[in-house]
Simulated scan of single mutants.
Amino acid sequence: MASDGSPVIDTTVAHPARRYNYFLGGKDNFAADRASADEIERVLPTIRVGVRANRDLLRRATAYLAGEAGIRQFLDIGTGLPTADNTHEVAQRHAPDSRIVYVDNDPLVLTHARALLTSSPQGRTAYLAADLTDPAAILTHPGLSATLDLTQPVALMLVAVLHFIPGRGAAQPIVQHLLDALPAGSYLVATHATQDFMPPAQALAYQRMLDEGRSDVWTRDRAEFTALFEGLDLVAPGITPPSEWRPAVHMGIPPREDVAVWSGVGRKP
């Protein structure tokens, strides 16, 4: 923290939220973020297709939850920088009394969130500076209990964030910890980068980048991603690339190898 109590933003180190913002065409990023993004894009030239598919999935899944599923509470971890159709905007468009808690660990996100993530009069929006790798801290944060009632169903949104937890099997205990705190009728929405659709040469090049520490996106295969939904009832169409999860009629469906992401929505029985 700075001497005045404001968060310190390290502009020399790439951060996923700012890199994501760059991929979406935003301007809230620094040279280190752009350099990191450009290096990844050289190996994965269609990465922006996957990023847009993630963002579109967030919008459609939120609309489904606030509309058809009747969910009024959302816990969005790995918020990223505010852009069009944030979770609270979509949810409150369908249900103005929706309450949303955003969680992110980037000080720049915190700065923007406080200014831009304003709620409808009927609902409520809060932001927590916390990290997905410490789910207990998120669940016990006073800002969470002040906004969400964990005795009532909550939609846990983990969109394009779990792949920043490295190590085989490392994501599942974190997801389970969060789900264990939520009541029956809650939902999990998750997306995750994968090498499943990459041509062998591209997968090898990306793995080399990962091994050398030049990327922080830890890919997982379909089996490991599907395991995150163990004990949940998958919402049709099940585990699919985000571009194929209830797409709008007018949407073109890009090739799976261009998206390179898995997605799913599950309900806690």
Rank of each mutant, 00 (worst) to 15 (best):
S3E: 11
D10L: 06
T11G: 07
V13K: 11
A14S: 11
A14P: 14
H15L: 06
P16L: 10
R19Y: 12
Y20H: 12
N21L: 06
Y22D: 00
K27R: 15
D28Y: 02
N29Y: 00
F30I: 01
D33L: 10
R34D: 08
I40A: 05
I40H: 01
E41K: 13
E41L: 10
R48C: 10
R48E: 14
R52N: 03
A53Q: 02
L57I: 03
L57G: 03
R59M: 04
R59H: 10
T62K: 09
T62S: 10
A63I: 04
A63L: 03
A69L: 04
A69Q: 06
G70I: 08
R72P: 08
Q73K: 02
F74N: 15
L75N: 14
G78E: 12
T79W: 14
G80T: 10
G80L: 14
N86D: 10
N86C: 03
H88R: 08
A91H: 12
Q92R: 08
Q92K: 13
R93F: 04
A95D: 13
P96G: 05
D97T: 12
S98G: 03
R99E: 01
V101I: 03
Y102W: 02
N105M: 07
P107Y: 11
V109F: 04
H112W: 13
A115M: 08
T118W: 08
S119R: 06
Q122N: 10
G123W: 07
R124C: 13
T125K: 12
Y127G: 13
A130E: 13
T133W: 04
T133A: 11
D134P: 11
A136F: 14
A136V: 15
I138S: 02
I138V: 05
T140A: 15
H141D: 15
H141A: 15
P142T: 15
G143V: 13
L148C: 08
D149C: 14
T151Q: 15
V154P: 07
A155M: 13
M157D: 12
L158Q: 05
L162R: 07
F164N: 01
I165H: 07
P166W: 08
G167D: 09
G167V: 10
G169Q: 06
V175Y: 02
H177R: 15
D180F: 03
L182P: 01
A190R: 01
Q195E: 06
D196A: 09
D196R: 03
F197I: 07
M209G: 01
D211P: 01
D211Q: 02
S215F: 12
S215D: 10
D216I: 07
E224M: 02
F225E: 04
T226Y: 01
A227P: 07
L228M: 09
E230L: 07
E230K: 11
D233H: 06
G238W: 00
I239A: 04
P241D: 04
E244V: 00
E244S: 03
W245S: 01
G252V: 06
G252A: 05
I253T: 05
I253A: 03
D258I: 03
V259D: 05
V259R: 04
